[in-house]
Computed example of a mutant assay.
Amino acid sequence: MLIGHEKIFDRLKGLGLEGKLHHAQLFTGPEHVGKTTVALQLATLLQGTDKVSADTVLFLDDGENLSIESIRTVVERANQSHSLPYLIFVIENLGRMKAEAVNVLLKTLEEPHEDILFFLTAHQEDDVLPTLRSRCHVTAFQTVSDDLLRDVCGDNVYIDQLLFFAMGRPGKLRRLLDDKEYFEAHQEIFQDLAVFLEHPTTAGVFELGRKYEIHPLLEEMLDIFLRRVHSLARSHVLSMNRVEHIETCKQDLKGNVNRKLLLDNLLLPFVS
């Protein structure tokens, strides 16, 4: 289901039907915002099918690095025949691709076949090496307004919480609606942070650090914390510097960092 990106889809659809679509499309934007949904809908449209076919090759983000072996399979498949109008590759999150894998992919992009298309995604444009980015047509995806997402929620009694946790990302909203445990985990995170912000103490810092350093939803915890603190900053309850500090911690989390130390550094400034 496409939500909020109809203009992007219609523009690329028009180019595709006219045979003018650039062979390498790079979609950038937050995780779960709808980049892959647009790519897959374009793929089925251009293939003339009602579902993803064998001539659409998927490399979805499983949390692991994209190895050079995986990209070599792209090269091998690109040299094989296909039965539909296009052979299409959908590769999620290029930020997990190492330099040697990028070099292999570059060679394929530099010598495009007219009937092969690449739909590539990344959370940020800077996650993609300039040499690879320069071979692509870049489309930036923005988060979707709560008004558009509200219709998806129907008469759900938790609609305000769902919209808060989704943060303008249709894919995340869908998971929150479909996965009860995932939604309840977000509620627990929100409550933990609300208690801490109401009475921030050193003991509270260390308690949250112990709980969330190994928590599978640490990134979601930082997202919720960011949105809550941003709201308080707009109300002049907290400084905008706190918002910038959380943003920095979110970036640091992408690297090989000590998660407990990161959380301590994040939360201790809130203790007066």
Rank of each mutant, 00 (worst) to 15 (best):
M1E: 12
G4P: 02
E6A: 12
K7M: 12
I8S: 04
D10R: 01
R11Y: 12
G14H: 13
L15I: 04
G16R: 06
G19F: 14
L21Q: 09
A24H: 10
F27Q: 06
E31R: 15
T36D: 05
T37G: 03
T37V: 11
Q41E: 15
T56E: 00
F59P: 15
L60V: 09
D62F: 13
E69W: 11
I71C: 10
T73F: 10
A78Q: 12
Q80A: 12
H82V: 05
L87Q: 11
E100Q: 13
V104I: 10
T108L: 13
E111R: 04
E114M: 06
D115I: 01
F118V: 04
L129H: 14
P130C: 04
P130G: 06
T131I: 01
F141W: 00
Q142Y: 10
S145W: 02
L149I: 00
Y158C: 06
L163K: 01
F164K: 04
F165L: 07
A166L: 03
G168F: 05
G168T: 04
G168Y: 09
P170D: 02
R175A: 07
L176P: 04
D179Q: 13
E184P: 00
A185Y: 08
F190E: 14
A194H: 15
A194Y: 08
A194G: 05
L197W: 00
H199G: 05
H199E: 14
T201A: 05
T201R: 02
A203Y: 15
F206K: 01
F206M: 00
E207C: 10
Y212W: 03
Y212D: 02
P216F: 02
P216L: 10
L218G: 02
M221I: 01
D223A: 05
S231D: 07
H236R: 13
H236F: 11
H245T: 00
T248P: 10
V257C: 01
V257Q: 01
L262F: 13
L267E: 03
L267P: 05
P269D: 04
P269F: 11
